[in-house]
Design a protein around this nucleic acid. Structure first.
Lengths: 225, 225
DNA sequence: CTGTCATTCAATTATTACATTGAATGACGA
DNA sequence: TCGTCATTCAATGTAATAATTGAATGACAG
């Protein structure tokens, strides 16, 4: 850590941030934290990882200034330091999308591409919702839905898609969204709904992007006030 | 590299890109390549690093899709794959700037902050140049200047600042720019000019950002056509 | 075909990152 | 004060990454 010259010292600081983003688990953690603050234990449960491991990765992110911690009793709630983290994540994803054929291959394996695969943009969705033309479902788990969702969205966690679709109007198009543009839950939801005979598309982004765009966010009643 | 599920596979791909950015030398290489394509040897000379080391880092960047290589005789010219790389770099820098007090500290050590430290924006510079109020100097080495510079700029490499300043109009403000917002050459140039009694400021960005903004770029005569 | 030169590869060592385990801390409630 | 629980720390083995060296490739000139 000896500072030979300021130029290299600066690059070292930038590298610390990039390095902190350079691990799959930490990226997944960031995407979860983008939904809202989480305790170490809650995050570990979401990720299916040992608590100690998650704690150490969180500290790595904290050292890089990517997340911040706030103690609340015996819990420590971690959250993203600011929205610049999300844009850094998006930029990295942008490079990966543009240049790594692998990413495309993985997505296609997951979701057979058709012309109607085109995702719905935020603007399109707002128009469709205003005119009452679509049913909007939020396929994230209930706790994430409660912390904030697109106004008018119905919470249908992935496991309940099949049950729910029985009661849904078969002739009405469904738009699904989840955590972000590469969150696979909305892909799975759309695939499931189509196989059940519904017309369904994905929202191109997820909740964090909706919020970052300054659009209105609705919260569950027991969180209000 | 076993693909357990598509979600993790995607995060792994994103992590590859971020990991490639997670090394000071590679970040410095990217900033150099943002000025224009370079051969391995030329880049190694700029960085003061052994050729083999630079070659291996270049390959790491290539695997991540950040740079691309083009063979030309016995030379291999590397360049940035696309401008999304620059925006990813900028985002990482943004997180670092916002969150790491260390960065601020390093910059301040380099350049004692005053109210007139405020850098000149691109828009301001264009207005100042149009009205002929400032002298614009490009403090990068001559080869980088030749590959493209801001119209009207004079090339004054760092080592020639002192000599050049003797012939400069002492009452006229000087604006200096170099490779990018954190490139220290323009900091050093401004510090040197001020100590010599000149009024000098930095342009907030460098050449790559100027080019990425779609602004006109001038090339040396022997490169034209 | 041979020599030269830019680049890459292969092998080595040192360093750093990672996951796991079990123990230590720190705050709360009884 | 004591026990409980969330979190962190410390220690371990393993794997990945980095810099260095010298040899191998691949293209050009003669």
């Amino acid at each position: 850590m000896s500072i030979r010259n300021p130029k290299q010292a600066l690059y070292e600081q930038f590298a610390i941030v990039a390095k902190a983003l350079g691990h799959p688990l930490r990226l997944e953690m960031i995407e979860h934290l983008a939904q809202g603050a989480r305790s170490v234990e809650a995050l570990a449960a979401k990720l299916g990882q040992p608590v100690a491991n998650v704690s150490q990765h969180l500290q790595a992110l904290r050292r890089a200034g990517i997340v911040s911690a706030e103690r609340d009793g015996k819990f420590v709630h971690y959250s993203l330091s600011d929205t610049s983290v999300l844009s850094a994540f998006a930029s990295v994803r942008g490079v990966a999308e543009r240049r790594l054929a692998e990413v495309d291959r993985i997505v296609r394996r997951y979701f057979d591409a058709r012309d109607d695969m085109r995702p719905v943009t935020r603007d399109e969705l707002q128009a469709l919702m205003r005119d009452g033309l679509v049913t909007l479902i939020d396929v994230r788990p209930a706790d994430e839905f409660a912390l904030g969702h697109v106004p008018g969205a119905i919470n249908v966690p992935l496991g309940e898609i099949k049950t729910w679709s029985g009661s849904a109007d078969a002739g009405r198009e469904i738009v699904a969204y989840c955590r972000g543009p590469w969150c696979v839950m909305s892909f799975e939801a759309v695939a499931a709904l189509r196989s059940l005979g519904h017309s369904a598309r994905r929202l191109e982004d997820g909740m964090p992007e909706w919020r970052a765009a300054g659009l209105p966010v609705e919260m569950a009643a027991w969180y209000r006030g």
